[in-house]
Amino acid sequence: MSELSVRNLIGIKDLKASDLNLIFETTNRFLEVLNRPIKKVPTLRDITIANLFFENSTRTKLSFELAQKRLSADVINFSSSVSSIKKGESLIDTINNIISMKVDMIVVRHPSEGVASMISKKVKSIIINAGDGSNEHPTQAILDTYTIQQKFGNISGKKIAIIGDILHSRVALSNIYALKKLGAEVCVCGPTTLIPKYIKSLGVTVETNLKKALLWCDVANVLRVQFERMKSSYFPSNREYSKYFGITKKILDDLGKDITIMHPGPINRGVELSSEVVESDYSVILDQVENGVAVRMAIMYLLASKL
């Protein structure tokens, strides 16, 4: 019987390739559950999970909540915009109050890096990181790699380009860790100002020409430009970004080869991807969303075994 090597899911950095494969294997089972007439199993009926979102989210929050309900867990939701954080309560006091309500598992998203890790050291509940600043977004990386595996059969040896705002992206970092652990080749592509200096130390190549990156890769994971995290100007205008790094259907058609386009959402249509590409056969964006629920069910199921 296999189990995860970690008690909390803080980042892909802490996982082994065998953990990722176990999550994929378990996800296959949950995808089947999601296609049943009753898309629900009673496994986590005695578990309470708190979703603490200190930052905006649509997909991740809905996906986690749906996954928890499909597993029959009791769910409480917290979002900082309507909470006592507004009255000046500190993060750790908020967490301690929620723990006192006998919560078994916490899903946390926070704009500061390291929050999930800090909470995991203070409390006994199981912690799942749903995104901490520009650090990691492990569940997104697992569902991205799962989607690639689902499409190609395996990940080892595949060429993946991560295109866009690498500097501010937790999705990029988690994806790089996951893809490298599973034996893929990874290239990052974007304006030089949005590619961090240390990135080569993670074993990836850097390309600033979009066309070259697209010609090289089997899969392009296109990221959103994170305007909300930008404290200064990294490129002259949206129009210029779109001219050099925006992907249109014509660019993809002209490549003369098969390519798969992924995007973790939310999409800035017309900036990094044209609407035509989003809705084309190149895109597996909605598969990613569907797989997201099953991946999160698998992760919570496997972690709940540690309680």
Partner: peptide
């Protein structure tokens, strides 16, 4: 697997094909 009464008891339960 998802309906067993020994989840979180002595061993990890890995689901099978259904």
């Amino acid at each position: 697997t998802f309906h067993r009464d020994d989840f979180r008891r002595d061993k990890v339960l890995n689901p099978n094909f259904n």
